[in-house]
Amino acid sequence: MTSPSSPTAAETYLFDGPSSRRGRAMNKLFMSLRDEQARATFLADETAYCARFALSPEQTRAVLDRDWQAMLDLGGSIFYIYKLALMDGLSMQYLGGVFTGMTEADFKAAMLAGGRTDV
């Protein structure tokens, strides 16, 4: 429905209007995690917290399982998803490994070698 010039593909995941609409509840949950008290509440009962933010069953499952790829597919923005990863003590390199099918160590090594110049 949006203009044909809007590229979306598994290799890129543009965060556009339709994805922001799809992922809104989940991204709102992620954004709330900036607050320390909210993080404690979330960790005390993650399912209840997801219900409070009205996540869909698929989104709830993705969050509970830390299925980072599914979060992207369900409308998560990487900048919001990252707040959940931060809370878990995970790095952007770890996420990069997940998205590209590498270990964190391999992803880091690829970056130290000058980045993935061939994709």
């Binding site: 429905m1 949006t2 203009s3 010039s5 809007s6 556009d16 209007g17 339709p18 609409r21």
Partner: peptide, 11 residues
């Protein structure tokens, strides 16, 4: 009407 909204936004 989100579809039309997104179209107008882009244009």
């Amino acid at each position: 009407h989100p579809e039309l909204s997104f179209h107008l936004l882009q244009q």
